[in-house]
């Protein structure tokens, strides 16, 4: 069955497009809507957005693949993104990442068997003064220590 927005999301889509001086400018917000609705942006979702936006699916595919926050594959319920860039690395982010990996039994780039956690390393999230840090879904967790991380993971398991 082909993917489609719920009527509620479709309304949001129309509102979003209406906010912009040109329809194509709404591409990223519309892709966010689709990612929220469908979980990830697989070929069906991309083809659907392409059709909604009046563009070729290839073009939309190219856009999706450019941005790290748009995902073409399903990910865990909690997407743990540990900053790996220099300011965080100076404060021990490399050890935080391996600690999380061991704690969850997954490597960077993997999703836990129960589908609950995906572990990623990401580049600077502009939280360098409170390094090391990670983002889980939309939320920032800062000034991390192994103890703090263990408690956070426990609360999400």
């Amino acid at each position: 069955m082909a993917l489609e927005f719920s009527s509620e999301t479709y309304k949001k889509f129309e509102e979003t497009v209406g906010r912009y001086p040109k329809k194509e400018a709404a591409m990223l917000p519309v892709l966010y809507l689709a990612q929220q609705e469908f979980g990830y942006l697989g070929p069906e979702a991309i083809a659907y957005v392409a059709q909604l936006m009046g563009q070729s699916p290839a073009r939309v595919h190219g856009i999706v693949s450019f941005y790290t926050m748009l995902t073409m594959k399903p990910i865990g319920r909690y997407h743990i993104q540990v900053c790996r860039t220099l300011p965080c690395a100076l404060k021990g982010s490399e050890k935080i990442t391996s600690f999380i990996g061991k704690n969850l039994g997954i490597d960077v780039g993997q999703t836990s068997v129960n589908g609950r956690f995906t572990l990623s390393e990401v580049e600077c999230l502009a939280s360098c003064g409170t390094a090391p840090m990670m983002q889980i879904n939309d939320d920032y967790y800062e000034d991390l220590t192994e103890e703090k991380v263990a408690a956070i993971l426990e609360s999400l398991k």
Partner: peptide, 22 residues
């Protein structure tokens, strides 16, 4: 104006590609 090809990904992973099943 048929737009079959695109550039996927970025950096040195950039590649030219068709949309799946086209």
């Amino acid at each position: 104006h048929t737009n079959e090809l695109t550039v996927l990904h970025r950096g040195d992973h950039s590649t030219i590609a068709l949309f799946p099943d086209t």
